[in-house]
Simulated assay, not measured.
Amino acid sequence: MTDFLQHAPLGQTVLYPSQYDAGLLFPIPRAEARSQIGIADSALPFTGWDLWNAYEMSWLNAKGLPQVGILRARVPLDSANIIESKSFKLYLNSFNQTRFDHPQAVIDLLTKDLSDAAAGTVEIDLIGPERFGLEIFGEFDGINLDLQDVEIDQYQTDPTLLELDRHPKSNEAGHVTEQLFSRLLKSNCPVTGQPDWACVQIIYSGKPIDHAGLLKYIVSFRMHSGFHENCVERIFSDIMNRCAPATLSVFARYTRRGGLDINPWRATPGMPAPQWRRSARQ
């Protein structure tokens, strides 16, 4: 853990905020984690975003009556910072006893504060109870990598597990397009060591990737320490470096912690953005 993260509220005892306070947000620069996997902010090899869902969003209306909603925040990947998750939660808690004349005032303040912290334009959608019934649930489509009968003994990230299929079907020897997923992605918070659980979908076109090696690689994150966004960028980079697909999309839907879930998506430019659907585990 870097000295910088030692000052983050995550893993520390903090006071519950009683009034709105934008100063609770704790930004973490993306550059350091990216430099560790050979990515420069000046030449990002992917497009994408980080989608945050906050299910414990509340505030008071002008008469003091509590209001509730689901906050959906889309953070651009080219923003300078990610936002540390506990600080995000504390910041949202600071709205609980704060009065607003209109929901739009809440949206405007969230947009300003989160964009300032991320150093990039954060898109906000505040979903009221009248739209709760429109929320979409669904699992990833494609080939379930977890159904393979493989022996696993590597639980620290190992990109050498990734390789092209040495025995592809004759009609797959040149170029394929595949949609794959696994529910076995687990990593650990780099500050507290608590587990983070996710389902990851990988869509690619190119020479066939060995499915057994890909599953072993995903499981190799099991004891890895890294923030959600960093893990997805590492997966994208390792697959590109080892298997060189023509196109690649990596989308991870993490289970919530503290009323928040984080869903990073990284893809080669031109790949269509995934439709947002909550999984059963979220």
Rank of each mutant, 00 (worst) to 15 (best):
N241A: 15
L44W: 03
F236W: 09
Q97R: 10
I152Q: 13
D101T: 09
A8D: 06
R277E: 14
Y254L: 05
W59A: 03
V191N: 01
S94G: 06
V191I: 15
L15C: 07
I203P: 05
G38T: 02
L90T: 07
F4Y: 15
M271K: 06
A119G: 05
T177H: 14
W59M: 04
A212G: 11
I83Y: 02
T177D: 08
S220P: 09
R278E: 06
H167T: 14
Q275N: 15
R253Q: 08
A273V: 10
L164W: 04
F46T: 04
G11Y: 00
N230S: 14
S225C: 15
A267V: 03
N188G: 03
E178Q: 11
A246K: 08
S42Q: 15
R74Q: 15
A31N: 09
P269G: 02
A244F: 05
K112Y: 08
V191H: 03
S237A: 11
P17F: 00
L110N: 04
L24E: 03
V14A: 14
F227D: 01
S187Y: 06
S115Q: 04
D210Q: 15
D141E: 15
S87F: 00
V250K: 01
I82H: 02
G11A: 02
D165H: 12
A244R: 10
L215N: 00
S220I: 03
V75C: 11
N81F: 07
V191K: 00
F88D: 04
G23E: 13
A8Q: 05
A117I: 02
G259I: 00
H228Q: 13
F132D: 11
L110R: 04
L215V: 01
G69F: 05
L147E: 15
V150L: 13
Y20L: 14
I203T: 12
G259K: 01
T47E: 13
Q97F: 15
A40C: 12
A280R: 15
